[in-house]
Amino acid sequence: MHDFQYHKPSSVADAVAALGSGEDATLVAGGMTLIPTLKQRLAAPSDLVDLSGVADLVGVRDKGDHVEIGAMTTHAAVAASPDVPGCLAELAGNIGDAQVRNRGTIGGSVANNDPTACYPSACLALNATIVTNSREIAADDYFTGMFETALEEGEIITAIRFPKPEAGKYMKFENPASRYALVGVFVAKTGGQVRVAVTGAGQDGVFRATDIESALSSNFSPDAVDSSTIDVDGLNGDIHASAEYRQHLIGVMAKRAVAACA
């Protein structure tokens, strides 16, 4: 790992200032992706700005029709929170391993937008709002490609708002070695509207399976998934699974998720 200047600001404003002070400064949340990346020298920032000293960024707040989760809230804390919708808590409780869940944060995961991460699918399926230090971004406008987001330079996620669904379920088919999502499908029904988001499978990262959504909108049952088409174009094929296999798994995971919602 190359050395860097370490900063631990206690407010978001100070974090923004610290980000601007370095030639190539970067934020660290839980560090569960970034620190291994630094160790492999795949990144070598001049400055590391640690958000763990910003107390305002931690915690789950029940806001009636939605729940607001601070960006620095760990996966373990989300999984254990009684205020978080069950489907989201369950997703958080199955990320990585116990030690990763004790350090890794929702804000870090959503900012990184790893194409196999679980949280991005929850954001899209639950129609979440990504709250930053300067604006609110709808999940539909936020995920712009593999490891790409709408975040601008110096913009920091402060919280994520999730509307509470009537029903929801995330089904993950894990890579048996890494346990990352080979395919993960989040099905949610909120305010009568059905949204289906797929992670792990798309060449551009997380996406909404709109055809499955319309099939489920008229008939919310596992059988309805069979009558919808999942386009193989744009799906990822690699040593772990072909694009066709991922296409198949999207249907299977979607059906299981719908069955679990009922």
Binding site: Y6, K8, G31, M32, I35, P36, L48, D50, S52, A76, A98, Q99, V100, N102, R103
Partner: peptide
């Protein structure tokens, strides 16, 4: 009080 992997945390953290 919580278990973590000490190879994935900086001493300064």
């Amino acid at each position: 009080g919580r278990s973590i992997k000490s190879c994935t945390l900086l001493a300064v953290q």
